Simulated scan of single mutants.
Amino acid sequence: MTLNIPRALALLATSMTLSVASAQTVKIGVIAALTGGGAPWGLAAAEGPRILAQEINDKGGLEVAGKKHKVEIVAYDDQYKAADAVAAYNRLVNQDKVKYVIIMGSAATMALKQQVEDDKVVALTASYTGKALDKGSKYMIRLYSPPDDYIGSFIAWMKDNVKGRRVAIINPNDETGWDQTQLATRVFKANGFEVLGSELFERVQKDFQPMMTKVIAMKPDVIELGGTSPATAGLIIRQARELGYDKLFSKTGGAGPKDIVASAGAKAAEGTINMLYADPANEGYKRLAAAYKKARGQDANEIIVSFYDGANVLLNAMQKAGTVDDTSKVIAAFPKALPMKSIQGDQLTFGGKSTYGVDAQVMTINYIGSIRNGEPVVIGKTK
């Protein structure tokens, strides 16, 4: 009998589609800044899990306790505003019947922290603030290592590899920025740097010349941009260069070197030292970035790896728990879901107790990068 290959493949595809369509659906909500200055991070927060969901659905769905489940991502824009994050959360939980959410911002996380616990909704947060986790955190999990975990080794690396010890710190005027300023000030001082001062700005701000005139007058060797969103960081760099600042910029949080270059220009951004979530040369990252570009028509912010990996850990926890409905069992299964490999091949582990008093965090590997000729280059790793 002659097999009609195209027809057979079509029947197989139809069978898989029907299988997934008839399966129970597991919804994961995403609350992130899908527009505005934080959009590169927010779109990555939505698209990373969406790419993972598509990969799983293309294979017939997520198998939990012998049953196949379709994975669906539902994302809402909070515009980096706590009030909008609360509205998005209420819509996800009450209307969309979501039991699992990914929250991008610190302000959003703090606004939703107690509500998550009360509703027994499993929440993965990308929040930088150390206040996000504490001994009362039972349903909140951080999906990557924030500056509290890596900034010590990052700045220790700077101590050994950059010239000058005079630092000025710039951050947004919100929960992320306040936390980042306090943390960076403490760690820079501990490593022998002189912190000349710090400045806060509103996230909607565009004109930084008055602020940068003041900062440059301090004569810093390094201007640290902390949790500033990538496009805004690029704008600050460009305006500082126009005012004559010719020394180093560093960015220990909230990576996005390509967005920095797009906003500042390659020449102005040259040499900027920044934390990276991904190694641009890594094959796993390149595959993920290619899928993002195909879906969005633009380059991904490399933080996408953290949201892809975090969603993968969550789904693995569901499999270990043997349920997609009982969130108490799923949250209890996180220690069993780890360790596991990240998309880049690094080992993801479970921890956080030494820093926050509770093991409620996916411990990840971060990279130290430098912008060279408009491209990020990995020059080290954080410990």
Rank of each mutant, 00 (worst) to 15 (best):
33 A>M: 09
192 G>R: 03
207 D>S: 10
335 P>Q: 07
341 K>L: 11
278 A>E: 06
33 A>V: 00
9 L>E: 11
6 P>H: 06
130 G>L: 02
192 G>A: 08
275 M>A: 08
301 N>Y: 05
77 D>C: 05
72 E>F: 04
251 K>M: 10
85 A>S: 15
263 S>K: 07
146 P>L: 07
60 G>D: 13
307 F>V: 01
80 Y>P: 00
255 A>Q: 07
317 A>R: 05
129 T>I: 02
58 D>N: 15
46 A>E: 12
368 I>Y: 06
172 P>C: 06
9 L>M: 07
301 N>C: 10
157 W>K: 10
108 A>C: 07
67 K>C: 03
194 E>C: 00
338 L>G: 04
274 N>V: 15
348 L>K: 05
14 T>V: 12
370 S>E: 15
344 Q>Y: 11
214 K>Q: 11
113 K>H: 08
55 E>R: 15
189 K>E: 15
201 F>Q: 05
237 I>N: 06
326 D>M: 14
199 E>M: 05
8 A>R: 15
345 G>W: 12
106 S>I: 02
140 M>I: 13
340 M>G: 01
155 I>H: 03
329 K>W: 04
181 T>D: 13
141 I>M: 10
46 A>N: 07
30 V>T: 11
201 F>G: 04
101 V>P: 03
307 F>I: 03
65 A>T: 05
269 A>Y: 01
238 R>Q: 08
18 L>Y: 13
11 L>I: 12
99 K>T: 04
352 G>A: 12
34 L>H: 13
18 L>H: 14
333 A>Y: 04
103 I>Y: 00
273 I>H: 11
3 L>H: 11
57 N>T: 09
40 P>L: 06
200 L>H: 13
287 R>L: 11
60 G>I: 15
98 V>P: 03
